[in-house]
């Protein structure tokens, strides 16, 4: 029994290590980094920008993170160029609500099984998907993944961007870490 427990614990540890990017709550720094990518779009953002905060109602963790993001944005967070943000929460069960939005922040804690569905919905709506879960970018379901600490890194999926008809200036694509299928 003890041996089984040790093996299980080791298995879970390996799984966590293989995943590589343990979920963490999205904070103001992550959002600030995400918003700083907007001036680097080839098509400039309208003002105000309509933002969807995507969560899974079956995941309390993701809902809590979405509410946290909503609170930060409602607190007056703006994109560079004094672009105001109008945010609303969107459940993965209601992805048609992405229509008319320009940006979709994916809350942390969304099960990876949802990533493909979100990616398809966002690309159909032409929405820029940004997350802190890099696996979503690696599978070409999200366009951008941001890491704000200890050093800012931006992960970029050209395939996901192409499907959503979204493009960035070339200097940005050379500086971002390109992942996913090429």
């Amino acid at each position: 029994m003890k041996k089984a427990q040790i093996l299980s614990a080791a298995g879970l540890l390996c799984l966590a290590l293989l995943t590589g990017y343990p979920a963490q709550a999205t904070d103001r720094f992550d959002l600030a980094v995400a918003l700083k990518t907007l001036p680097l779009l080839t098509n400039k953002m309208t003002n105000p920008a309509k933002v969807a905060i995507v969560y899974d109602s079956a995941s309390p963790e993701s809902k809590a993170d979405a509410e946290s993001i909503q609170s930060i944005i409602d607190g007056g967070l703006e994109a560079p160029g004094n672009i105001k943000l109008v945010a609303s929460m969107v459940d993965v069960a209601e992805l048609t609500k992405l229509n008319g939005k320009q940006i979709a922040f994916l809350a942390d804690g969304i099960p990876s099984a949802d990533d493909r569905r979100i990616g398809n919905g966002a690309s159909a709506a032409g929405v820029l998907t940004i997350c802190t879960n890099i696996d979503c970018v690696k599978t070409d379901d999200c366009i951008l993944g941001v890491v704000s600490k200890p050093r800012v890194e931006v992960y970029y999926s050209p395939a996901a961007a192409g499907r959503a008809r979204i493009s960035f200036v070339s200097a940005f694509t050379m500086l971002a870490k390109q992942v996913g299928s090429m």
Partner: peptide, 25 residues
Amino acid sequence: AVDYGSLESLFGEPITTSATGTPQR
């Protein structure tokens, strides 16, 4: 011109093309 201002603000450090001809942190 590269948009040095936006890229520097995003990555938190100056951007340069003087080492390889392509943008780098």
